[in-house]
Design a protein around this nucleic acid. Structure first.
Lengths: 109, 109
DNA sequence: ATTATATTTCCATTATATTGGAAATATGAA
DNA sequence: TTCATATTTCCAATATAATGGAAATATAAT
C-alpha cells in the first residue's frame, strides 16, 4: 500500500458518519446494505449519505453493486486489511511481537 | 473504544506528515525518536512538526518523555491495537474469519 | 406513458485544519 | 551568568471538508 492510498482510506474513516457506515458494512459482510436502508437506519439525509458513500467508495473502502432500483454497499475487506498492515508494518524494529492478522481474507472465504 | 476516540486517532493518522511520523515511531519501537531528529529526518520545520506531534499526542497515538533537553516520542501500541480492533469488530456478522491480532502487546513485552 | 421509489448531483453556506516564521520557554554547558 | 540547543506556542494567511434542500437521473410497477 502506498501512503496516498492509506491517507485516503484514513481520511474517509476519520469522520463519525462514515466510520459508523463502514462499521455497519463490516458487520453486514458480503451481502451489504442498500443506501436507503443505511439512510433510514442512521437517520441521515439522502444527500449527505450519498456524499459520504462516495468518499468511502473513492477510498475503495466500500464497493457498490446495483440490484434493480437498489444500490447495495459492502465493505472492501482487502483495502481494510491492507490498511491495518500498513499501520503496523515492521513494528518495533524486529523485536518479536504478534503479527497483525487479517479479517475475512481469502484463507477462509 | 468509543467512537470519538477512534475518530480522533483516525483524524490524526489521516495526514501525510503525521502518518509518516507515526510509522517511523512504530518502527522505532519503545525507545522512540527525539523531536529534533524527526524534524531533521523528515525535513519538516520545527513549528510544523510540533503541531503534528501535538495532534498525535492528543489522540494518544504517541507518548512523549523528556530526557534532558530532548523530548522522545514513541508510538502508543495500546491505542493502535484498540483502533485496529474497533475497525474490524464483529466483522462479517459471525461468518468465521481470521481475528485481528495485535502488535507489541503485553503477551510479549 | 404515468407515477412512485431509490439514489445521486449541484451548489452555496458554514465549519475546520494546515502552514511556518518569529517569539517564548526550558534545559544544559562553558 | 551567558550562550547554545531543543522544543513549543502564537497567530494570521490559506486551504480543505461537510451540510442538506432542491433538482436531476434511473429503474420498476401500473
Amino acid at each position: 500500500m502506498k501512503i496516498n492510498i492509506a491517507i485516503k482510506a484514513l481520511t474517509a474513516l476519520a469522520h463519525e458518519t462514515r466510520l459508523t457506515i463502514f462499521r455497519v458494512l463490516v458487520q453486514a459482510g458480503e451481502s451489504g446494505v442498500a443506501a436507503g436502508q443505511l439512510a433510514k437506519e442512521l437517520n441521515i439525509p439522502n444527500a449527505t449519505l450519498s456524499f459520504h458513500l462516495k468518499e468511502l467508495t473513492n477510498a475503495e473502502l466500500v464497493t457498490a453493486r446495483q440490484e434493480g432500483r437498489f444500490i447495495y454497499y459492502s465493505a472492501n475487506f482487502e483495502t481494510m486489511n491492507a490498511l491495518l498492515g500498513y499501520l503496523t508494518e515492521n513494528c518495533c524494529a524486529g523485536v518479536p511481537c504478534s503479527p497483525v492478522d487479517v479479517c475475512c481474507d481469502e484463507k477462509i472465504s
